[in-house]
Nucleic acid binder design. Structure first.
Lengths: 99, 99
DNA sequence: ATGACACTTCAATCGTGATCGAACTGTCGA
DNA sequence: TCGACAGTTCGATCACGATTGAAGTGTCAT
């Protein structure tokens, strides 16, 4: 079995669906640009209520696109190291040969 | 006016939403691999009824991701030349400086 | 000119995922 | 230990896009 497990098609679509949602798109973009940010910093960027933001952050977490760590009262979110690569590979136009 | 207009954020999300749908994802992937294909060739790949396929093809057409041309009874679909590039740029993790 | 074929369009229904409101957990300061 | 703060979770509702079924184009062969 390969050390690197290929993303299945359904995973690819799920990943793209995650990125296609406005709130999550902005979160990912902001994290990609700023590195690590706590939820309170993401809130104005996302432009939604805390519970809605939390809902989307959970989705991103469960997909492994972001990681979270508590720092006192706050919780910091960071883009997963392989997030960009996984998203690129999820595009239907990315040729399968090029990893 | 520029021949190439920058993709707005909302366009980026719309583009990703198009690619995130299973039927359209397969269409795009197949066209990216095979070049040009008529609807009857896409039908088994998409795995849906003709009218549903048509619905999705229309969405891709209106987004400029594919082009269509009638050839006798058949209609050929081709991936737009800039489709792959536009999709890559639509990812929230693609840095804005690199075009 | 008529029927078969290849595909599109339209109106109506259905499902899924995003949002809302409220309650809950965990952390810190006074 | 009490209250305020930072986030999360939960159940219910809503909205929107995908599907369905049927009717409508356009093209070719006979």
């Amino acid at each position: 079995m390969p050390t690197w497990s290929p993303e299945r098609e359904s995973d690819a679509m799920a990943l793209l669906a995650l990125a296609a949602e406005p709130v999550r798109w902005r979160i990912l973009q902001s994290l990609a640009a700023a590195g690590t940010q706590c939820v309170c910093e993401l809130e104005p960027i996302a432009g939604v209520a805390p519970n809605v933001l939390s809902y989307h952050l959970k989705a991103l977490r469960e997909a492994g696109l972001v990681t979270s760590a508590r720092r006192g009262r706050w919780i910091d979110y960071t883009l997963a190291p392989d997030a960009a690569e996984r998203l690129e590979r999820a595009l239907p136009t990315s040729l399968p040969g090029s990893r």
